[in-house]
Simulated assay, not measured.
Amino acid sequence: MTTKIALVTGASAGIGEAIARALLDEGWTVYAAARRVDRMAGLADRGAHVLGMDVTDDASMTAGVQRILDECGRIDALVNNAGYGSYGALEEVPMDEARRQFEVNVFGLARLTQLVTPTMRAQHSGRIVNISSMAAHIYEPLGSWYHATKFAVNGLSDSLRLELKPFGIDVVTVQPGGIKSEWAGISADSLEQRSGHGPYATQARTLATMLRGSDANSSEPEVVARAVVAACTAKRPRSKYTIGMGAKPLVAARRVLPDRAMDALLSAAFDQAPKLVERRAKRDAS
């Protein structure tokens, strides 16, 4: 084999698009999957095969994987990138939305892993790269469902790494920090919709301000793409790649600080963030 085959989900924008482009640049055959097929025209122009895929729809996932196997006969890397941030007070988030957050961020990832594993076992090779987050180690008010999914992705990935090692399959978790994308704006919109009025409104306004101002101090999506390329190509990839703005210091702090100290650190950051965003806006306007 001179060309490796990769399936990248959530490839219509942001991190997923950057990953697909980086793998194409490395000479991989890339199947770029997302619901918004029209937004992947640029990837198609660069040589990617685009797939309409919804990770909450089993039929679309099954058909997508089968198409790759029919056309290529193998899959060398699955990059589970599809996901979103659902924010709001736990009291106010409908359970249907909580279930959807898990369907997209966890169960879709798990189902695609189920679908590619038999082929990778037969090959006795393969990489499963799960895009998690530094949110798997820290926490914030009004983000309980999102953080719960990322904790789940890390736990699933750690168990799966040992489970699939005897079959020559490597499981890697990539844990980005702040990354410039449309993710923050979408998360802020969901937060304000659910908790922008009522008992949690003050917290919601603060966190929405933080989310919308986060791009100014965030890393480019290409930082994640480089980590994914390393995870897919290294002879012995790391089990976890922690990259992007703020990720390493916050993950390290969580390892060593007791809960009360970590609560104080995160609360202080939460309290100061709106002031920092306001000062930054005034500076940029001057």
Rank of each mutant, 00 (worst) to 15 (best):
I186N: 12
S239Q: 12
D189S: 05
P94L: 08
L51Q: 03
G177V: 03
L250W: 11
A32C: 03
R226Y: 04
V251E: 06
V106I: 13
A285S: 14
R111Y: 14
A63H: 08
R39C: 09
L142R: 06
D263V: 13
A201Y: 08
W183Y: 15
Y31A: 10
G126E: 11
L24P: 02
P166M: 12
Q203I: 02
I169D: 03
M95D: 12
G14M: 10
W183D: 06
E220G: 01
L90Q: 10
G155T: 07
T9E: 06
C72T: 06
V256K: 08
V229P: 02
A136Q: 04
R236W: 10
V93N: 04
Q175M: 12
P118H: 13
N105H: 01
N105D: 08
E192R: 11
G198P: 11
A11L: 13
G64L: 12
R100I: 11
A148Y: 04
P94D: 09
H124C: 00
M61C: 15
L78C: 07
Y139I: 05
V50S: 06
Y87W: 12
G246Q: 01
D70S: 14
V93K: 01
A63M: 07
A98H: 04
V251D: 02
D215N: 14
A122R: 15
T3L: 14
E222D: 15
G246R: 04
Y84G: 03
S60F: 11
E71F: 03
S157V: 06
A268F: 09
S60D: 15
P274Q: 05
S157F: 01
R39P: 07
A89D: 14
L211I: 02
Q272N: 14
R260V: 10
K275V: 09
R67Y: 03
A89T: 10
V8H: 09
P221A: 06
V37D: 04
F151M: 08
V37Y: 05
S190N: 13
P176M: 07
K235Y: 07
D158M: 01
G47L: 10
S219I: 00
L51I: 05
G16D: 03
E163R: 11
R205L: 10
V55Y: 06
E182D: 15
T242A: 03
H137E: 11
G88D: 02
G168F: 13
G73L: 06
N81P: 02
M53K: 05
R280C: 07
K150L: 01
N217T: 13
A6W: 04
E220R: 10
P199F: 10
S181A: 12
S181G: 12
V224G: 01
E278G: 03
C232Y: 00
H137S: 09
E17P: 00
S157R: 00
A234S: 15
R99G: 05
Q203S: 13
N81M: 02
L43Y: 04
P176R: 01
Y87M: 13
P176C: 11
S86D: 09
V50C: 07
Q101L: 12
S132Q: 06
S214I: 07
V116M: 04
G47R: 08
R67G: 01
V153Y: 05
M120Q: 14
G47A: 11
A110M: 15
D158I: 04
A227E: 01
M245V: 01
